[in-house]
Structures are given as C-alpha cells and as structure tokens.
C-alpha cells in the first residue's frame, strides 16, 4: 500500500533565465515531519509556494494522496487537504481569534456559504463538527484563553500559532510551515516544537522550513537540503548533520 501522502517529482521553477529550483523530488509519509533547509535563496519558499499553489510550477508533478494537484488553484488544494502558513505573520487583524480560526473551515464545509447565507440549506452536523474542530485547534495551539481577543492585539508568536490553528481547522493531511519560528524567543520555540509534535501525532504530515537548526533537528523525522535551487542531500537529522556537502554549503563546521 502506498502510504505517501505527498509526492513531489522533478519539481522545477524558473524566473526568466534564472532557475530558482531544479529537479526537486521527495515523498512525505503520513504523520511525518519533514524539514526543508538550505541557505537563503536556495529555493525553500519557492518550493512551498509551488506546493501550496501560490505560484505555478514550471514543470514537475505534485501528488496529494495520489491525485495530481500541480494545476489546481490554492483553494482547491486546501479543499483536498493541503494547507500552509506564511513566513511573515499574515492574518486577518480585525477578527477575533475564534472568528479567524473558524474561517479556516471554509474550504471543507459541507454546505456552501451562499446557500447558507440565504438559509437555502443548513447542515447542523456540519456546524457542530466545525465548532469541535475549532475548539480542538485552539487547544492544540494554546489559544483557548485568547479566543475572544482581537487578532491584531496578539503578539507575533501568538499570531504565528493562530496561523497554524487556522490551517488546522481545514482538516489537512499535509501542512506546510514556512519559517514558523521566525521572530520567536526560546520558550516560544519550545512551545512550537511541542505543537508540531502533537500535529504529527494527530496523523498530519508537516513540512517545515526553518533556519533554527536546533528546532529542525529536534522535530524532524527527515530533512531535505537545498542549495542554489538544487537538492543536495536527504536523510535523517543525524545523517544530515554529518553530511559533508551540507556542512560545506550550509551548516558549517561548528554545527
């Protein structure tokens, strides 16, 4: 049986003559945390943007649970279970935390919003399922006490957790975290790493881009290393730490 949730095959991206990403292939298993690391400009964010559908791929295949998704829109990919967060805290600042997280369910609702707005159809089971999902996401990200706060008043770290909570309510099988620890202090990073662990335990596969090596080495089951838009290594944290090419390109001797 094929247990790979996400399969990436020969993914390429060029901007004009510049090849930002060349021939990237990797698989993600169910409930696996995969790290994507590399120096600045190595193509990490480009990869996440192509996987999530924010940017079209120049060539290559992306399969989610066996379905080709590389030509689908971003919202359709969310509907199939692939969701993401952003490198900079990108939120809806005027909503309450609860409203914000609830919005994450839109892609996976049983009844369309237009139908519901005019009371054409209503699915009570849908509503209760969503309440449950929101409560679960708030709990997992530690935002229960902030549920009625306005998003704009939250700290940066809390806004980052909120992005994760919102992504989780879409009931994903894969979640892409683009530098989730950026701007976080040490105890917030610890909270984050615990959170990623619990997301994995829920059976969701997590792709993490991060520059904070301690966090990456701690949470990841496997790591893919990019350099100048090309994959240079793939393996467990231990293998990556000892890989000569990775040390030369990115980690340095001290690591």
């Amino acid at each position: 049986m094929n247990t790979d949730v996400l399969e990436v095959d020969g993914l390429c991206k060029s901007f004009g003559g510049v090849k930002a990403l060349r021939d990237l292939s990797f698989n993600m298993r169910r409930g696996e945390v995969l790290g994507l690391i590399g120096p600045n400009g190595s193509g990490k964010s480009t990869t996440v943007n192509m996987l999530s559908g924010a940017m079209p791929a120049s060539s290559g295949e992306i399969r989610l649970n066996g379905t080709r998704i590389e030509t689908l829109s971003q919202w359709d990919r969310v509907g199939l279970g692939l969701t993401r967060t952003y490198q900079t805290a990108s939120v809806f600042p005027e909503f309450t935390v609860r409203q914000h997280v609830t919005l994450g369910c839109e892609g996976r609702r049983g009844v369309g919003p237009l139908a519901q707005a005019f009371r054409l159809r209503r699915d009570p089971a849908d509503d209760s399922r969503i309440k449950e999902r929101v409560a679960k996401a708030l709990e997992l990200t530690g935002l229960v006490d902030q549920a009625d706060h306005i998003v704009g008043t939250l700290s940066t770290a809390q806004q980052r957790f909120l992005m994760i909570a919102t992504a989780l309510t879409s009931d994903p099988c894969v979640i892409l975290l683009d530098e989730p620890a950026a701007g976080m202090i040490s105890h917030e990073r610890e909270t984050l790493s615990g959170m990623i662990g619990r997301i994995r335990d829920a059976g969701i596969s997590v792709l993490v881009i991060e520059h904070h090596m301690a966090l990456i080495m701690e949470v990841c089951d496997r790591i893919v290393v990019l350099n100048f838009g090309a994959p240079i290594a793939q393996g467990t944290p231990r293998e990556i730490r000892e890989n000569r090419a990775v040390i030369d390109a990115y980690l340095g001797e001290a690591a």
Binding site: S52, G79, R84, E106, P113, A117
Partner: peptide, 23 residues
C-alpha cells in the same frame, strides 16, 4: 452570514483568503 465574514476577510487580507481554501 458566513459570506459577510469572507467579505470582511477579503478586505483585511485578500491574499490570505486563498490559503483558507476560499476562492
């Protein structure tokens, strides 16, 4: 309604709307 929520979301951060699965 939920439509109103989505409209407000578009006003606040249109690019983010796609990533919550909404066209």
């Amino acid at each position: 309604s939920r439509v109103g929520q989505i409209l407000l979301a578009i006003r606040q951060n249109e690019d983010l709307v796609a990533s919550v699965g909404v066209a």
